[in-house]
Amino acid sequence: MVKFCDRGRSCRKPLTIKYFYAIFKIMPRLARLDAPGVLHHVMGRGIEQNEIFLNNEDRKDFIKRLEILALDNAIDVYAWTLLPNHFHLLIKTKERPLSSTMRKLLTGYVVNYNKRHMRHGHLFQNRYKSIVCQEDVYLNELVRYIHLNLLRAKIVKSLNKLNLSPWSGHSALMGKVKRNWQNTDYVLSLFGNKRNRRKNYLAYVEKGIKKGHRPELVGGGLIRSMGGWSEVIALRERGDKNVYDQRILGESDFVEKIVSDLDEMAKRNLKRLGKRIDLEKLAEKICNKFDISMNELCSGSRRKIVIKARQIVSWLAVRELGYTGADVAYFLGVTNSCVTRIVSGTKPDLKKFMKLLR
Protein backbone atom coordinates (compact mmCIF):
# COMPACT_ATOMS: atom_id res chain seq x y z
CA MET A 1 0.00 0.00 0.00
CA VAL A 2 1.34 3.44 -0.91
CA LYS A 3 1.59 5.68 2.11
CA PHE A 4 1.50 9.45 1.98
CA CYS A 5 1.79 12.16 4.59
CA ASP A 6 -0.11 15.44 4.50
CA ARG A 7 2.31 17.08 2.05
CA GLY A 8 2.13 14.25 -0.47
CA ARG A 9 5.53 12.73 0.41
CA SER A 10 5.94 9.09 1.37
CA CYS A 11 5.86 8.49 5.11
CA ARG A 12 5.77 5.64 7.57
CA LYS A 13 2.23 5.97 8.85
CA PRO A 14 -0.63 5.16 6.43
CA LEU A 15 -4.02 6.85 6.55
CA THR A 16 -6.08 4.67 8.90
CA ILE A 17 -9.78 4.31 9.61
CA LYS A 18 -9.13 5.95 12.97
CA TYR A 19 -7.65 8.95 11.12
CA PHE A 20 -10.73 9.39 8.92
CA TYR A 21 -13.03 8.97 11.93
CA ALA A 22 -11.12 11.77 13.62
CA ILE A 23 -11.87 14.08 10.71
CA PHE A 24 -15.62 13.68 11.16
CA LYS A 25 -15.36 13.84 14.93
CA ILE A 26 -13.38 17.08 14.88
CA MET A 27 -14.79 18.81 11.85
CA PRO A 28 -18.50 19.71 12.07
CA ARG A 29 -20.62 18.88 9.05
CA LEU A 30 -21.78 21.77 6.94
CA ALA A 31 -24.98 23.16 8.42
CA ARG A 32 -27.94 24.13 6.25
CA LEU A 33 -26.74 27.69 6.65
CA ASP A 34 -24.50 27.00 3.65
CA ALA A 35 -27.25 25.37 1.61
CA PRO A 36 -28.15 26.53 -1.92
CA GLY A 37 -30.16 29.73 -2.07
CA VAL A 38 -28.64 31.51 0.94
CA LEU A 39 -27.76 35.19 0.52
CA HIS A 40 -24.34 36.21 1.87
CA HIS A 41 -22.59 39.53 2.35
CA VAL A 42 -18.92 38.54 2.10
CA MET A 43 -16.00 40.77 3.06
CA GLY A 44 -12.26 40.12 2.77
CA ARG A 45 -9.44 42.35 4.01
CA GLY A 46 -5.71 42.49 3.44
CA ILE A 47 -3.49 41.26 6.25
CA GLU A 48 -2.50 44.14 8.56
CA GLN A 49 -4.74 46.37 6.40
CA ASN A 50 -2.32 46.06 3.48
CA GLU A 51 -3.56 46.61 -0.06
CA ILE A 52 -4.81 43.55 -1.93
CA PHE A 53 -5.29 45.34 -5.26
CA LEU A 54 -2.18 47.24 -6.36
CA ASN A 55 -3.14 47.87 -9.96
CA ASN A 56 -5.84 47.31 -12.56
CA GLU A 57 -4.35 43.95 -13.54
CA ASP A 58 -5.02 42.72 -10.01
CA ARG A 59 -8.59 43.98 -10.10
CA LYS A 60 -9.26 42.43 -13.51
CA ASP A 61 -7.88 39.09 -12.33
CA PHE A 62 -10.18 39.08 -9.30
CA ILE A 63 -13.20 40.05 -11.38
CA LYS A 64 -12.42 37.37 -13.97
CA ARG A 65 -12.34 34.73 -11.25
CA LEU A 66 -15.65 35.98 -9.89
CA GLU A 67 -17.09 35.81 -13.42
CA ILE A 68 -15.95 32.19 -13.87
CA LEU A 69 -17.66 31.15 -10.63
CA ALA A 70 -20.88 32.92 -11.60
CA LEU A 71 -20.92 31.35 -15.08
CA ASP A 72 -20.13 27.97 -13.54
CA ASN A 73 -23.42 28.20 -11.61
CA ALA A 74 -21.69 28.36 -8.25
CA ILE A 75 -23.18 31.73 -7.24
CA ASP A 76 -25.51 34.53 -8.25
CA VAL A 77 -23.74 37.88 -7.99
CA TYR A 78 -25.95 40.83 -7.04
CA ALA A 79 -23.42 43.44 -5.90
CA TRP A 80 -19.67 43.81 -5.45
CA THR A 81 -16.98 46.40 -5.00
CA LEU A 82 -13.17 46.38 -4.91
CA LEU A 83 -11.34 48.83 -2.64
CA PRO A 84 -7.55 48.98 -2.23
CA ASN A 85 -7.38 46.85 0.93
CA HIS A 86 -10.68 44.98 0.98
CA PHE A 87 -13.64 43.80 -1.08
CA HIS A 88 -17.39 43.34 -0.65
CA LEU A 89 -19.56 40.74 -2.38
CA LEU A 90 -23.31 40.18 -2.21
CA ILE A 91 -23.86 36.68 -3.53
CA LYS A 92 -26.34 33.83 -3.32
CA THR A 93 -25.04 30.28 -3.19
CA LYS A 94 -26.25 27.87 -5.86
CA GLU A 95 -24.62 24.51 -6.61
CA ARG A 96 -21.61 24.80 -4.26
CA PRO A 97 -21.11 25.63 -0.60
CA LEU A 98 -19.88 29.15 0.04
CA SER A 99 -16.64 27.84 1.58
CA SER A 100 -15.77 25.97 -1.63
CA THR A 101 -16.55 28.98 -3.81
CA MET A 102 -14.51 31.40 -1.71
CA ARG A 103 -11.59 29.01 -1.50
CA LYS A 104 -11.46 28.78 -5.28
CA LEU A 105 -11.79 32.55 -5.68
CA LEU A 106 -9.23 33.62 -3.09
CA THR A 107 -6.62 30.86 -3.40
CA GLY A 108 -6.30 31.29 -7.14
CA TYR A 109 -6.15 35.06 -6.79
CA VAL A 110 -3.41 34.94 -4.13
CA VAL A 111 -1.27 32.56 -6.19
CA ASN A 112 -1.40 34.88 -9.22
CA TYR A 113 -1.00 38.00 -7.08
CA ASN A 114 2.15 36.62 -5.47
CA LYS A 115 3.61 35.73 -8.87
CA ARG A 116 2.82 39.16 -10.32
CA HIS A 117 4.36 41.02 -7.40
CA MET A 118 7.20 38.58 -6.63
CA ARG A 119 6.11 37.90 -3.07
CA HIS A 120 5.02 34.91 -0.99
CA GLY A 121 2.89 34.21 2.05
CA HIS A 122 -0.60 35.23 3.15
CA LEU A 123 -2.45 38.14 1.55
CA PHE A 124 -5.80 38.15 3.32
CA GLN A 125 -6.47 38.73 7.00
CA ASN A 126 -7.48 35.31 8.34
CA ARG A 127 -10.60 34.07 6.58
CA TYR A 128 -13.21 36.17 4.83
CA LYS A 129 -16.16 37.40 6.89
CA SER A 130 -19.60 36.22 5.80
CA ILE A 131 -22.99 37.44 7.00
CA VAL A 132 -26.16 35.54 6.13
CA CYS A 133 -28.77 38.10 5.06
CA GLN A 134 -32.54 38.17 5.05
CA GLU A 135 -33.14 38.78 1.37
CA ASP A 136 -36.61 40.32 1.37
CA VAL A 137 -35.65 42.88 4.03
CA TYR A 138 -32.05 43.76 3.27
CA LEU A 139 -31.16 43.01 -0.36
CA ASN A 140 -31.89 46.53 -1.68
CA GLU A 141 -30.07 48.14 1.25
CA LEU A 142 -27.03 45.94 0.82
CA VAL A 143 -26.77 46.52 -2.93
CA ARG A 144 -26.77 50.26 -2.27
CA TYR A 145 -24.41 50.07 0.71
CA ILE A 146 -21.85 47.92 -1.10
CA HIS A 147 -21.80 50.01 -4.26
CA LEU A 148 -21.50 53.32 -2.39
CA ASN A 149 -18.26 52.16 -0.77
CA LEU A 150 -16.22 53.60 -3.64
CA LEU A 151 -17.83 56.99 -3.13
CA ARG A 152 -17.54 56.92 0.66
CA ALA A 153 -13.85 56.01 0.37
CA LYS A 154 -13.39 58.91 -2.10
CA ILE A 155 -12.02 56.58 -4.76
CA VAL A 156 -14.60 58.14 -7.05
CA LYS A 157 -15.57 61.77 -6.55
CA SER A 158 -19.23 61.77 -7.59
CA LEU A 159 -22.21 59.60 -8.36
CA ASN A 160 -21.64 60.20 -12.06
CA LYS A 161 -18.11 58.82 -11.71
CA LEU A 162 -19.48 55.84 -9.76
CA ASN A 163 -21.88 55.13 -12.63
CA LEU A 164 -18.86 54.60 -14.91
CA SER A 165 -16.42 52.89 -12.57
CA PRO A 166 -15.49 49.33 -13.59
CA TRP A 167 -14.55 48.40 -10.00
CA SER A 168 -18.04 47.79 -8.66
CA GLY A 169 -21.24 46.17 -9.87
CA HIS A 170 -23.04 49.53 -9.91
CA SER A 171 -21.86 50.38 -13.43
CA ALA A 172 -23.36 47.12 -14.73
CA LEU A 173 -26.68 47.93 -13.08
CA MET A 174 -26.56 51.33 -14.77
CA GLY A 175 -25.85 49.70 -18.15
CA LYS A 176 -22.48 51.44 -18.51
CA VAL A 177 -20.32 48.32 -18.27
CA LYS A 178 -21.41 45.00 -19.75
CA ARG A 179 -21.18 42.08 -17.33
CA ASN A 180 -23.37 39.19 -18.48
CA TRP A 181 -22.39 37.14 -15.43
CA GLN A 182 -23.79 39.67 -12.93
CA ASN A 183 -27.47 39.16 -12.13
CA THR A 184 -28.57 42.70 -12.88
CA ASP A 185 -32.06 41.71 -14.06
CA TYR A 186 -33.06 40.39 -10.64
CA VAL A 187 -31.77 43.44 -8.78
CA LEU A 188 -33.35 45.92 -11.20
CA SER A 189 -36.67 44.04 -11.09
CA LEU A 190 -36.96 45.23 -7.49
CA PHE A 191 -37.17 48.83 -8.71
CA GLY A 192 -40.20 48.73 -10.98
CA ASN A 193 -40.90 48.10 -14.66
CA LYS A 194 -38.23 47.97 -17.37
CA ARG A 195 -38.90 51.52 -18.46
CA ASN A 196 -38.25 53.17 -15.08
CA ARG A 197 -36.29 50.67 -13.02
CA ARG A 198 -32.79 52.01 -13.76
CA LYS A 199 -33.91 55.55 -12.96
CA ASN A 200 -35.58 54.37 -9.75
CA TYR A 201 -32.49 52.39 -8.75
CA LEU A 202 -30.22 55.41 -9.26
CA ALA A 203 -32.54 57.62 -7.21
CA TYR A 204 -32.49 55.02 -4.43
CA VAL A 205 -28.67 54.90 -4.47
CA GLU A 206 -28.47 58.71 -4.41
CA LYS A 207 -30.64 58.84 -1.29
CA GLY A 208 -28.21 56.50 0.43
CA ILE A 209 -25.26 58.90 0.09
CA LYS A 210 -26.45 60.96 3.06
CA LYS A 211 -26.77 57.86 5.24
CA GLY A 212 -23.00 57.47 5.41
CA HIS A 213 -21.42 54.37 6.94
CA ARG A 214 -24.01 51.76 7.94
CA PRO A 215 -22.53 49.59 10.75
CA GLU A 216 -25.83 47.78 11.19
CA LEU A 217 -25.40 46.28 7.71
CA VAL A 218 -22.12 44.59 8.59
CA GLY A 219 -23.12 43.36 12.03
CA GLY A 220 -21.71 46.28 14.04
CA GLY A 221 -25.14 47.48 15.18
CA LEU A 222 -26.34 44.05 16.33
CA ILE A 223 -25.80 42.14 19.55
CA ARG A 224 -22.72 40.20 18.43
CA SER A 225 -21.13 37.02 19.70
CA MET A 226 -17.44 36.56 19.09
CA GLY A 227 -17.90 32.87 19.79
CA GLY A 228 -19.85 32.40 16.58
CA TRP A 229 -22.70 29.90 16.37
CA SER A 230 -22.05 28.51 19.84
CA GLU A 231 -23.12 31.72 21.54
CA VAL A 232 -26.20 32.05 19.32
CA ILE A 233 -27.38 28.65 20.46
CA ALA A 234 -26.54 29.52 24.06
CA LEU A 235 -28.73 32.62 23.77
CA ARG A 236 -31.60 30.49 22.51
CA GLU A 237 -31.18 28.04 25.37
CA ARG A 238 -31.33 30.94 27.84
CA GLY A 239 -34.62 32.01 26.28
CA ASP A 240 -33.38 35.25 24.75
CA LYS A 241 -36.21 36.62 22.58
CA ASN A 242 -33.97 38.63 20.24
CA VAL A 243 -31.28 36.34 18.95
CA TYR A 244 -28.55 37.99 16.91
CA ASP A 245 -25.11 37.01 15.74
CA GLN A 246 -22.35 38.62 13.69
CA ARG A 247 -22.98 36.03 10.98
CA ILE A 248 -26.67 36.92 10.52
CA LEU A 249 -28.36 40.09 9.31
CA GLY A 250 -32.10 39.89 9.67
CA GLU A 251 -35.12 40.17 11.93
CA SER A 252 -35.28 38.03 15.04
CA ASP A 253 -37.61 35.45 13.49
CA PHE A 254 -35.24 35.03 10.55
CA VAL A 255 -32.25 34.56 12.85
CA GLU A 256 -34.23 32.04 14.90
CA LYS A 257 -35.05 30.05 11.77
CA ILE A 258 -31.42 30.03 10.56
CA VAL A 259 -30.17 28.83 13.93
CA SER A 260 -32.84 26.15 14.25
CA ASP A 261 -31.79 24.82 10.86
CA LEU A 262 -28.41 23.76 12.22
CA ASP A 263 -28.40 19.98 12.32
CA GLU A 264 -27.84 18.11 15.57
CA MET A 265 -24.31 16.99 14.70
CA ALA A 266 -23.22 20.56 14.08
CA LYS A 267 -24.71 21.61 17.42
CA ARG A 268 -22.86 18.87 19.28
CA ASN A 269 -19.57 20.02 17.76
CA LEU A 270 -19.97 23.65 18.74
CA LYS A 271 -18.07 25.00 21.73
CA ARG A 272 -19.98 27.03 24.32
CA LEU A 273 -17.46 29.85 24.43
CA GLY A 274 -17.58 33.57 25.00
CA LYS A 275 -15.11 35.98 23.44
CA ARG A 276 -12.13 34.05 22.14
CA ILE A 277 -8.63 35.14 21.28
CA ASP A 278 -7.84 35.81 17.63
CA LEU A 279 -5.77 33.15 15.88
CA GLU A 280 -3.06 35.63 14.97
CA LYS A 281 -2.71 36.83 18.58
CA LEU A 282 -2.58 33.25 19.82
CA ALA A 283 0.13 32.40 17.29
CA GLU A 284 2.16 35.47 18.28
CA LYS A 285 2.08 34.42 21.94
CA ILE A 286 3.17 30.88 21.09
CA CYS A 287 5.96 32.21 18.87
CA ASN A 288 7.23 34.35 21.73
CA LYS A 289 7.24 31.31 24.00
CA PHE A 290 9.31 29.30 21.52
CA ASP A 291 11.42 32.27 20.38
CA ILE A 292 10.53 31.85 16.71
CA SER A 293 9.04 34.26 14.16
CA MET A 294 5.53 34.20 12.74
CA ASN A 295 6.99 33.77 9.27
CA GLU A 296 8.82 30.63 10.37
CA LEU A 297 5.70 29.25 12.05
CA CYS A 298 3.72 29.59 8.81
CA SER A 299 6.54 28.64 6.44
CA GLY A 300 6.28 24.85 6.61
CA SER A 301 9.63 24.61 8.39
CA ARG A 302 10.51 21.12 9.69
CA ARG A 303 12.67 22.35 12.58
CA LYS A 304 11.65 20.48 15.73
CA ILE A 305 10.90 23.62 17.70
CA VAL A 306 8.68 24.99 14.88
CA ILE A 307 6.81 21.68 14.58
CA LYS A 308 6.23 21.77 18.34
CA ALA A 309 4.93 25.35 18.19
CA ARG A 310 2.62 24.43 15.31
CA GLN A 311 1.31 21.51 17.36
CA ILE A 312 0.52 23.76 20.33
CA VAL A 313 -1.21 26.36 18.17
CA SER A 314 -3.33 23.65 16.49
CA TRP A 315 -4.33 21.97 19.74
CA LEU A 316 -5.26 25.18 21.52
CA ALA A 317 -7.11 26.63 18.52
CA VAL A 318 -9.15 23.52 17.65
CA ARG A 319 -9.59 21.75 21.00
CA GLU A 320 -9.83 24.70 23.37
CA LEU A 321 -11.11 27.61 21.28
CA GLY A 322 -13.38 25.79 18.83
CA TYR A 323 -11.76 26.94 15.59
CA THR A 324 -12.19 24.52 12.70
CA GLY A 325 -9.24 22.57 11.38
CA ALA A 326 -9.70 24.40 8.07
CA ASP A 327 -9.35 27.79 9.80
CA VAL A 328 -6.13 26.74 11.51
CA ALA A 329 -4.71 25.06 8.40
CA TYR A 330 -5.38 28.16 6.30
CA PHE A 331 -3.70 30.39 8.88
CA LEU A 332 -0.64 28.15 9.29
CA GLY A 333 -0.27 27.52 5.56
CA VAL A 334 -0.59 23.74 5.86
CA THR A 335 -3.15 21.21 4.64
CA ASN A 336 -6.33 20.36 6.53
CA SER A 337 -5.09 16.80 6.98
CA CYS A 338 -1.94 18.09 8.68
CA VAL A 339 -3.97 19.84 11.39
CA THR A 340 -6.31 16.85 11.70
CA ARG A 341 -3.34 14.55 12.29
CA ILE A 342 -2.00 16.88 14.98
CA VAL A 343 -5.20 17.24 16.99
CA SER A 344 -6.16 13.57 16.68
CA GLY A 345 -2.75 12.44 17.92
CA THR A 346 -1.24 12.36 21.40
CA LYS A 347 -2.22 15.38 23.44
CA PRO A 348 0.77 17.59 24.29
CA ASP A 349 1.31 19.12 27.72
CA LEU A 350 -0.71 22.33 27.51
CA LYS A 351 -0.64 23.44 31.16
CA LYS A 352 1.87 26.25 30.71
CA PHE A 353 0.11 27.48 27.58
CA MET A 354 -3.50 27.67 28.84
CA LYS A 355 -3.02 31.15 30.32
CA LEU A 356 -2.21 32.40 26.80
CA LEU A 357 -5.88 31.95 25.89
CA ARG A 358 -6.91 34.91 28.03
Rank of each mutant, 00 (worst) to 15 (best):
M118V: 14
Y128R: 14
L273A: 14
L190S: 14
I223C: 02
R12F: 03
S252Q: 08
A79C: 13
M265P: 01
N288Q: 00
L273P: 02
Y323R: 05
D245A: 14
L33F: 15
N50I: 08
F53C: 04
K351V: 10
Y244H: 05
M294D: 00
G44T: 13
D72N: 09
Q246S: 09
N295G: 00
V306T: 11
G227H: 04
L279D: 10
A153N: 04
R224H: 01
K104I: 03
E135V: 09
R7W: 02
K94F: 01
F53S: 04
C287Y: 00
T340V: 09
R302I: 08
I131S: 15
R7Y: 07
K281H: 10
R197G: 03
A153F: 08
I305Y: 11
R341T: 15
Y21S: 06
L82R: 13
V38W: 14
I17L: 05
M27T: 14
S168G: 06
L83W: 11
R32E: 13
S293T: 05
K64P: 01
S230C: 01
L357F: 02
Q182Y: 06
I292C: 01
K199L: 12
G175A: 07
R238F: 06
V38C: 11
L297E: 00
R236K: 06
F24E: 09
V143M: 02
D245E: 07
E284Y: 04
L89P: 09
K271G: 01
K207P: 01
V2L: 08
A326K: 15
L332F: 04
V187Y: 09
T184K: 13
G37V: 12
V334Q: 06
P28I: 04
H40V: 11
G239W: 09
R9W: 09
A266D: 10
G220W: 12
H122C: 03
W167C: 02
R238A: 10
Q182K: 13
E237T: 05
G274K: 13
H117Y: 05
G239R: 10
D327T: 08
C287A: 00
A309V: 03
R116H: 11
V111M: 05
S225V: 05
A172K: 03
A31F: 11
S158I: 13
G239M: 11
D76Y: 06
M1I: 02
G208A: 09
L142I: 14
L98Q: 15
I292Q: 00
I23N: 00
D58F: 05
F353N: 04
T101C: 12
F87C: 11
K161F: 02
K176S: 00
S165W: 07
N269R: 14
K285T: 03
V255R: 05
N112D: 15
Q49Y: 07
G300S: 03
V111C: 01
N183L: 07
E237Y: 07
K176G: 02
D58K: 12
G333L: 08
I233P: 02
R119N: 01
V232P: 04
R214C: 14
Y78G: 06
P28E: 11
